[in-house]
Nucleic acid binder design. Structure first.
Length: 416
RNA sequence: CGGGGUGUGGCGCAGUUGAUAGCGCGCUCGGUUUGGGACCGAGAGGUCGAAGGUUUGAGUCCUUUCACCCCGACCA
């Protein structure tokens, strides 16, 4: 991709109506466009990051047997009345509307009931189980107050997975496999070391649910860490009973601010009893399905990553999710243009994703944009480097710069 | 939803005791530049969030309203 073809542009000034670091940088760099409070559009650069994150999640969900589908945004009133969650007193984030004939419909803030309703049409026998399905969906929530840029919006992308199991054992096996899969995801996203499986207030069937909390100053949660034992507890469930159950002392804990990037629940048979979701077991008897729910905040984790890695120059994307691997800066006249064009063609031909700054701009502008966008590697082609047949190679995260020959450059980019 | 704050060219801002708007960035054209957000010259672009009111006269004062931001509450 050539910078001259991007319809977005970068800005030196941060928008006045955004305070959060993630929104300021994403908007300045042309990754997102603010539509209204808590609602953001993803422009081509931002979409590339979003899709990279989704792909990592998708691969890990598929690896544990998840089947991808996509539900609808419009939902039926009856679907939610079954569990009592159509009521605005019970769920206060509903967006609701009516069809032309006055039939009430809701906009999906969650898809638990919707998916359960659908799955019970198909899963009738123990032979059908277990089944685990997931989707990437735009959730619509009528939040009283949006905040923190893309970290808490009224419209956001979530991966939600639901497991349908024969019994508690089968459920637990999948639940634990999901924890492992989530950990792999956060590792691949570059935030594994700062993300903790955290005890949090539970669902109907278990004392705790598990949240995945990433240490982040911009986060909304507070958790208590026991680093040696690798135990984390959300402050909402921190009490003497919890402490004794986990065998730890209060004074061993470290208080940290975090952002919730995932939350998994064991519903047991609570929801299947509410909805009448049953299957026939090997003895020919009806039995309730064990259900689990597994959320992962796709857009939120994108915001968290911006918050965590950004420096005074701009964003710093982990290579796995960066919109491009290389930002190619061209400085100089005809000779530089010729060499840069060749390098661009060669790298893209090798499958390296390159954002080529082919604009007739001054070097400072190009360097600043490369840094603002947070592209992992910057390669500079200039007249004076061409004279020595060398290229300048700079790592965004560390700022380290090396002068490399063509072979060294290609070798470095292909292995890193 | 409670409290606080802000709305002025695309973006960031200024506008003194009321007299129909100005700066920087960006944009267009011409020229000079070319390794850290260049410079010179010439332009385009706003009726001041919206509605109503006070006044000879309102971006400046009053009322209502909308939007946005922050703190809190909420977050199944």
């Amino acid at each position: 991709m050539r910078v001259s073809d991007l319809f977005t542009r970068t800005s030196k000034d941060a928008p006045a109506d955004e305070v959060s670091k993630n929104a300021q940088l994403l908007i300045r760099a042309g990754f997102v466009y603010k539509v209204m409070a808590g609602v953001y559009a993803y422009t081509p650069l931002g979409l590339r990051v979003l899709e990279n994150i989704k792909q990592i999640v998708r691969e890990e969900m598929n690896a544990i047997g998840g089947q991808e589908l996509i539900m609808s945004s419009l939902q039926k009133k009856e679907t939610w009345e079954t569990t009592g969650r159509w009521d605005d007193e019970v769920v206060d984030v509903w967006f609701k509307s009516k069809l032309k004939d006055d039939t009430e419909v809701g906009f999906g803030w969650s898809h638990e009931e919707s998916i359960i309703e659908m799955m019970q049409q198909y899963l009738k026998s123990y032979k059908d189980l277990p089944i685990n399905v997931y989707q990437f969906q735009t959730k619509l929530r009528n939040e009283l107050r949006a905040k923190s840029g893309i970290m808490r919006g009224r419209e956001f992308v979530m991966k939600d997975m639901y497991s349908c199991s024969i019994d508690a054992d089968q459920h637990e096996a999948f639940y634990n496999a999901t924890i492992d899969a989530y950990n792999r995801i956060y590792d691949r996203l570059g935030i594994g070391d700062d993300t903790y499986v955290t005890f949090a207030s539970g669902g109907a069937f278990t004392q705790f649910s598990h949240e995945f909390q990433t240490i982040c100053e911009a986060g909304e949660d507070v958790i208590y860490l026991h680093r040696e034992k690798n135990i984390a507890i959300n402050e909402e469930v921190l009490n003497d009973e919890t402490l004794s159950k986990l065998g730890i002392q209060r004074d061993e804990l470290e208080k940290v601010k975090t952002a919730e990037v995932g939350n998994i629940f064991n519903f047991g048979t609570h929801k299947s009893e509410q909805t009448g979701f049953k299957f026939t077991n090997a003895e020919g008897k009806e039995q309730f399905v064990h259900l689990g729910s597994y959320g992962f905040g796709v857009t939120r984790v994108m915001g968290v990553i911006v918050e965590k890695f950004a420096d005074e120059k701009g964003m710093v994307w982990p290579e796995n999710i960066a919109p491009f691997k290389v930002y190619l800066v061209r400085i100089g006249g005809d000779d530089a243009i010729k060499h840069a064009n060749e390098l661009y063609d060669e790298l893209t031909g090798q499958g390296v994703e390159v954002l080529y700054d082919d604009r007739d701009e001054r070097p400072g502008t190009k360097f600043a944009d490369a840094e603002l966008m947070g592209i992992p590697y910057r390669v500079t082609v200039s007249d004076r480097l061409i004279a020595d047949s060398t290229y300048e190679y700079t790592v965004r995260a560390s700022g380290e710069t090396e002068i490399l020959t063509r072979d060294q450059l290609l070798g470095t980019l292909n292995k890193s």
